[in-house]
Design a protein around this nucleic acid. Structure first.
Lengths: 353, 353
DNA sequence: TTGTAGGCGTTATCAA
DNA sequence: TTGATAACGCCTACAA
């Protein structure tokens, strides 16, 4: 009884340690909790003076409605997850910028997760999100020929997903990609036109849709120019820099291609390092072109020819599509694939000797 | 009455649309909600078989405890905020990698926010976090001579903050920095030793602590070598690439320095672009060294000399310090400044002609 | 080892 | 325009 009394007493007082909340505010202002709540939610009718008084007092006392309580009530988290293979890659960091831009305007928070291209991490993270933590997910994927049930479970919970760049064909979701086939075709054709006869294709994960599509452009361009496709010129690399260095070095020394078409920028970098190491001159001995969104590609030695995807715009688009779904309130909306255009920048690494 | 009845009826049934929760699970398994809860929380005693049965059933039915309900109960969000000026900068993206690494191990989520070096955005975001949204904050700041009350308010709510790289001196929080003064001194001295007499210092925001410290190293190195400090050689740049190009071009054409010490990598890039534009040869006409964590600095034309901060390790350290605080359960812990060491990489941009 | 019950802080509904 | 109240889904004393 005494304890109860004390406990009660405690509640009346308030010191800096206590977490302020709507109830305390209500008591101190002699206003009901509902009115306080209304002051913070634009919609409801509330007397202007009352509202101002409340907001002023709240500001003074450093009060903001508890995010988790609101979420629990509303079943809305105003948070979205961004899942990407890597952050240290301008394509992705620019995409994040675009996503953030849109999210910020909508007053949404962004939860970031990096998979390191490890499929299991992707599965594990997505599965964790299946508890209301986020309202939606934007992702660029890391596995292909796998079971995608962990994603289908999101549907059950009405958590929309938007893919960008690296997508799963078998999942029904909005997708933002670039014209990878065309770009690859054009890039390969460009290498052929500058005289390359033996073009190697560097890829990290052949089985990912993006690896496949990009490779098809390469294959078809070869065919158009009557260059036969050779399997050993498709170089499957890893996620480890050192390993890649070794792999590529071996290729350049043994197979001696005269052109490199890299589907990922870091493999082009690795190629540069190897060339420095074994004294191959780019572009004289080897021409190089790569998918890359690196801003300073023109400053490389030699300037790197790139297929540059509109990373920032893709982020914007992906986020916009996600909000379209979120705001459609369950109305089924058509989930299309949106294809933006990459640009080909021919620089010294693949042209004049 | 009818309505109530129907509503009750609804609750009994469950279809895929309904959000599953602990109560429904309890009913379906004929077990109490507390036991279910225990199955998901390692700590409490619970029969092994019961636990397994529950977890299996939960998995099958795609159930995970609602994050927001748990948070509300526990007043813990298992989420931390990372606030940085930019993402498209390897220093920061590597730091995020480090932070993520630690957070992942602890089972924490990461909320990312980019300030674009705009102080108001920082204030606004931090203020939003003052509602239990996150358990702690890791940040690299964007303003200096300003009112930092928005940060002090976090203390009242017991939300710990850890600064890294760019810190506020006047806020009592754990800090992770590098030996900026020494590095700057060494870099400047290096330029002097390679023959530079007129070294410009490029900075984005002089008033930020980091700009000040780095500049002091520059100033003192000049002094040591009896080179008088000239105010017009301190070049205050902006956040806009085009503006910076113009500013730096003017400096190179009018003031004609023979060395550039850049406190931020993108100003070094801008310098490279200007040199290409006005046909200045690096390092013959101008030597350049810059703070930068760019992995491919050796691939630039010419390879860029850098002061490279241990970005990844700084992220690890910052996150570790934050968790130390979170796990100290309110026990005051000493909030020190932890200084890691940068490395000087002398490359062609600042050496042999 | 399991169950009961109250409350975390908010907001929507309904009534006043 | 405002107030009372019942959830939202979970977890933890406490009781059994």
């Amino acid at each position: 009884m005494l304890l109860l009394h004390l406990k009660g007493k405690r509640k009346q007082l308030r010191n800096k340690m206590d977490n302020i909340n709507i109830k305390i505010l209500a008591k101190e202002l002699n206003i009901s909790t509902s009115t306080i709540s209304r002051a913070f939610n634009g919609n409801s009718d509330i007397n202007k003076d009352t509202k101002e008084k409340i907001l002023a007092y709240a500001r003074e006392h450093n009060f903001l409605p508890n995010h988790y309580a609101s979420n629990l009530r509303d079943k809305k988290s105003r948070t979205l997850a961004v899942i990407i293979p890597e952050i240290t890659n301008e394509f992705f960091s620019q995409a994040i910028n675009g996503i953030e831009e849109v999210a910020r305007k909508k007053g949404f928070y962004i939860l970031l997760y990096r998979t390191d291209d490890v499929f299991e991490k992707e599965v594990s993270f997505v599965s964790y999100l299946n508890n209301g933590k986020v309202d939606g997910i934007i992702m660029s994927v890391s596995g292909e020929a796998n079971d995608h049930n962990y994603l289908r479970k999101l549907e059950q919970k009405n958590i929309p997903v938007v893919f960008f760049d690296r997508v799963y064909e078998d999942i029904d979701a909005a997708k933002v990609t670039t014209n990878d086939y065309d770009s690859s075709f054009a890039a390969t054709e460009h290498l052929i036109e500058t005289g390359c006869k033996k073009i190697a294709y560097l890829v990290v994960n052949k089985s990912i849709s993006i690896g496949k599509v990009r490779m098809q452009g390469y294959v078809d361009a070869l065919q158009k120019h009557n260059i036969s496709f050779v399997d050993e010129l498709v170089i499957d690399c890893s996620n480890d820099e050192k390993e890649n260095f070794v792999i590529i070095k071996k290729v350049l020394e043994d197979i001696k291609p005269d052109g490199i078409f890299s589907s990922v920028e870091r493999l082009a970098f690795a190629t540069y390092y190897v060339c420095n190491d074994i004294n191959l001159n780019i572009p004289r001995d080897l021409k190089v072109i790569s998918f890359s969104s690196l801003g300073i590609a023109p400053l490389l030695c030699p300037p790197l020819s790139t297929i540059t995807q509109p990373a920032y715009e893709m982020g914007i688009k992906a986020a916009t599509l996600l909000f379209d779904e979120l705001e459609s309130k369950g109305q089924p909306i058509t989930k299309k694939v949106h294809v933006l255009k990459s640009k080909l920048f021919i620089r010294k690494s693949s042209s004049g000797v």
